[in-house]
Design a protein around this nucleic acid. Structure first.
Length: 859
RNA sequence: GGCCCCUUGGCGGAACUGGUAGACGCAACGGACUUAAAAUCCGUCGUUCGCAAGGACGUGCCGGUUCGAGUCCGGCAGGGGCCACCA
């Protein structure tokens, strides 16, 4: 008996696949296409097994679809621009390119170890000018189409990374990479006009049926559509004639007791010029952060501007206009009217400053004369009161009525506001795609002519100090104006790296295309049929890509709007964490487990076993793929990753788990190896008839085909694995006798081999070859379940009496209700359970259950 | 604060659209083989009562709908996610 040696067998098959170039994808219109893509990696150093799950999952899909007859595209590349490279360059006194390409080399070798069915001929790195020159071209095209804007705006400034961040990259008031508290700065920046597409990006979410609801909901919330009205308040002041506010509750206009504007609202800024008190107040507002805790505890603060706003409907009534710390310039119009009775913040504010709290929406069952609000605002539904022409209306009717009236008076109109901001893409960093623009003293902003592309990064930049290396480079930014020929300055900002990843999937369709995309290839391969990645990109990358694809369509580079037809967000791999007595983290290989305790390897020092957490370098709870491949083989790792948890959930990596997977690999090989001498030849004709035992095995075989196919189709890898375990268990119990039995055994083993191939491709190749196939398993078609063998002739029907299971009975499938009822009532066990009570009725669910309902004794 | 999701044995998890809860794996335990160990094979494995046959209880908690609820509805608790002074 030969033992399965993964360390020799796995590299052998990887080489065979590579030599035969089996994963090379080509346009082939005789087959349906299938584009599988995992979110491409950032080359940060080394991968650990936690990264692997994502790629293995994609690989299982790719290999499965391939066997199902699809023309599969499964590419890989590198999201290679970004801050870590620059930080590493600063620390190691090296160059970001050197660091990045070294990491790519390491990680590529590690990925190859996993035996992925990737078409490596399409590989590229986004930091290659051959890639980013196309990005610059598209930037210029988008600029021409009005999709790019340069504007002054309040931006998020990361004081540690010395760069601007997009809203999506600020988490809890801190930079998503540096963790530094973000400051607000007013800067002139480049923006993609994503907010113009807010409505389209929102409604198109409904069409993304193969996306998780969770992700669609997150995008919906992020886009944040609010329907309401803008209302113009006339001001009593001669200098400032009117104030425009946005509200989603115009129905509560009669409950208004003040107006409030943001500290950076133009009117506030104007008054602050001559009012030192307000100026100080505005400075005070800016000092407060925006972290969750600070918002929770922040007190409402206001400064009375002295301005008074006239109520649009109540002659003679005026409202004080405050500058308030809780009003945001970025949302709506930066101005509100305060209705304390029906908004908690307005109520807190009104109580603090002693403003009136008139209630205008009264909950059902409350008396409008006596209903009042204490410390809790009422924002539920109800009936309008104290509101003149709206009295007695529902909230919805009142909204319509008041908007109509305001529109009639020219004092307001129905408006839709979105939370989504334009995407600021300027970054004051070196390691990114240069923005191809020129600043000329006489011509203003001038695009770099297409013929001068790419604008490449200078290699001799310095990284020994913070700030933008491009800006301080002695010569790089000197350029002649493309319009007037005078000396001008190059744009020294680079693009947000999320731009790089917003179109790479289109580039993969033809990575050698002379333009940004090859239209024929893009039309053939896109959309991505199955995209796989972490849910952490639910908003950032996935929203940007949806925008970018639309922009590419407008510019003629793509023929569709939605790049990803199917999305799957996979869970993380977690692992226990270990700490030595000093509180320092230890790698799993540094510890040794003895019974329930852990000690430092080779010592008696007790190690604390900490929480199970997402694998990360900082917690040291990582497992290198090389070590796993060496001891257990890659197939065992792949099998374990697919078996342990449902793919969307987190999965814990454990030594026991990988050992279990390794046992499976050995067991399958042993089973094939032991069967070989007894089996008929590969492709031998089926015998004339099958005995009972052989038929039973064939039934298991074909039912397994049906089940595993369905499970893989639906991304239920853990169930597919469980089915295959059951199959192997059944085969182990099978003791074939006669030619028919041996033929059925061969059929079963061949089937098993191909069914498990997507998960354990090296083992499958080895088995396939041993079974005598002349072709590779990777090219073998997926087996088909024969209906005659999957059909169930008898079914087990559970019998309940008053809903409690009392017995079961085997019946011919699809027996009619009368037959089942008669058979059930004839059973001794049933009679015993009925115990002489009167049978009220018998409920029969075909092929499943019979419930005998009897009178309750004594009731 | 708003919105959303989750909660099933010692553990990971099965259970299609309301129809036999606990598939499959891991761990554990008992046994066989072995000088011994590993590997392998056979068996047990939700709790509980019982010699057994069999019974009772059981899917976070309380209640409801139903012949029947892990699954549907209402409430509560715990855990997680996203957004967040968003008007």
């Amino acid at each position: 008996m030969s033992r399965y040696n993964a360390r020799e067998i796995e590299p052998k098959w990887q080489k065979t696949w590579e030599d035969a170039q089996v994963f090379r994808a080509r346009i082939d219109r005789t087959k349906p296409k299938y584009y599988v893509l995992e979110m491409f990696p950032y080359p940060s150093g080394r991968i650990h097994i936690g990264h692997g799950r994502n790629y293995v999952m994609g690989d299982v899909v790719a290999r499965f679809k391939r066997a199902m007859g699809f023309n599969v595209l499964h590419p890989m590349g590198w999201d290679a621009f970004g801050m870590p490279a620059e930080n590493a360059a600063m620390e190691q006194k090296s160059h970001p390119a050197k660091w990045t390409y070294a990491n790519i080399e390491t990680m590529k070798a590690q990925l190859k170890l996993l035996g992925l069915s990737v078409d490596w001929s399409r590989e590229f790195a986004t930091c290659d000018p051959a890639y980013y020159k196309h990005q610059q071209k598209m930037f210029l095209d988008f600029h021409r189409l009005g999709l790019v804007a340069r504007k002054e705006a309040n931006v998020n400034w990361d004081p540690v990374d010395h760069t601007v961040l997009a809203n999506e990259q600020v988490i809890d008031g801190r930079g998503w990479r540096s963790g530094a508290l973000v400051e607000q700065r007013k800067l002139t920046q480049w923006f993609f006009r994503i907010s113009d597409m807010a409505e389209e990006l929102l409604t198109a979410l409904d069409g993304l049926e193969r996306w998780p609801d969770k992700v669609r909901l997150m995008q919906r919330n992020w886009i944040g559509k609010s329907e309401g009205a803008r209302v113009t308040f006339a001001l009593t002041d001669a200098k400032h004639k009117s104030l425009e506010i946005f509200t989603t509750r115009p129905d509560t206009l009669f409950g208004a007791s003040f107006c409030a504007i943001a500290p950076d609202h133009p009117i506030a800024q104007e008054i602050a010029k001559t009012n030192a008190g307000l100026k100080n107040f505005i400075v005070e507002c800016k000092r407060h952060g925006t972290t969750a805790a600070e918002i929770e505890t922040a007190e409402k603060m206001g400064f009375d501007t002295g301005l008074r706003a006239k109520h649009p409907f109540v002659a003679g009534a005026t409202l004080p206009v405050y500058v308030a710390n809780f009003v945001l310039m970025e949302y709506g119009l930066g101005a509100i009217f305060g209705c304390p009775a029906h908004d908690q913040r307005d109520l807190d504010f009104a109580r603090k400053y002693g403003l009136p709290v008139p209630a205008v929406v009264v909950p059902a069952g409350e008396d409008p004369q006596t209903f009042s609000v204490g410390t809790e605002a009422y924002f539920g539904d109800g009936v309008l009161a104290n509101s003149d022409f709206m009295n007695g209306m529902s909230v919805e009717d009142a909204k319509r009525a008041v908007i109509a009236k305001l529109e009639g008076m020219g004092a307001g109109k129905r408006t839709i506001t979105y939370r989504l901001r334009d995407w600021g893409v300027s970054r004051q960093r070196y390691w990114g795609c240069p923005i191809p623009m020129i600043h000329c003293a006489s011509c203003g902003v001038v695009p770099v002519p297409d013929k001068d592309l790419p604008v490449t990064l200078p290699e001799d930049a310095t990284f020994d100090q913070p700030g933008n290396p491009l800006d301080r480079h002695p010569t790089w930014k000197n350029v002649v104006c493309a319009r007037c020929g005078k000396l001008a300055r190059r744009e020294t900002d680079t693009m947000d790296t999320f731009v790089d990843s917003s179109w790479y999937f289109a580039r993969f369709c033809d990575a050698q295309a002379p333009g940004p995309t090859n239209k024929e290839a893009v039309d053939y391969w896109l959309p991505v049929d199955q995209y796989i990645g972490g849910v952490e990109h639910a908003i950032l990358h996935l929203l940007y890509s949806r925008f970018f694809t639309r922009a590419m369509r407008k510019a003629g580079y793509a023929g569709l709007s939605e790049p990803f037809a199917g999305l799957f967000t996979q869970g993380m791999i977690t692992h226990e964490t270990y700490k030595d007595p000093d509180g320092k983290y230890l790698f799993p290989e540094e510890i040794e487990k003895r019974d329930d305790i852990a000690v430092k390897r080779g010592t008696n020092h007790r190690v604390t076993i900490g929480a199970v957490e997402k694998m990360s370098k900082s917690k040291k709870n990582v497992v290198p793929p090389e070590a796993v491949a060496d001891t257990f083989g890659v197939d065992a790792a792949r099998w374990f990753m697919m078996s342990d948890s449902p793919p969307e959930r987190d999965s814990e990596w454990s030594e026991a788990g990988i050992e279990g997977a390794w046992r499976y690999v050995q067991r399958v090989w042993r089973m094939v190896d032991e069967a070989l001498p007894h089996l008929p030849g590969f492709g031998a004709a089926a015998p004339d008839g099958f005995g009972e035992a052989a038929i039973a095995v064939r039934q298991v075989t074909h039912r397994t085909i049906a089940a595993v196919t369905d499970d893989l189709e639906r991304f239920r890898f853990n169930k597919a694995v469980a089915r295959l375990y059951e199959f192997v268990n059944a085969l182990s119990d099978f003791k074939p006798e006669g030619d028919d039995g041996q033929w059925a055994r061969r059929e079963a083993l061949e089937t098993l081999t191909i069914l498990m191939n997507p998960m354990v491709p090296h083992l499958a190749e080895e088995c396939w070859q041993a079974l005598g196939a002349a072709t590779m398993a990777v090219n073998a078609p997926w087996p088909k379940a024969e209906a005659a063998l999957t059909r169930q002739d008898t079914v087990t029907i559970a019998i309940q009496v008053n809903g409690k299971r009392r017995a079961e009975i085997d019946m011919a499938k699809d027996s009619d209700a009368k037959t089942v009822e008669a058979a059930v009532l004839a059973m001794d066990t049933v009679a015993k359970a009925i115990d002489g009570r009167r049978v009220k009725k018998v409920i029969i669910v075909a092929n499943r259950i019979a419930n005998v309902v009897v009178e309750l004794s004594g009731a």
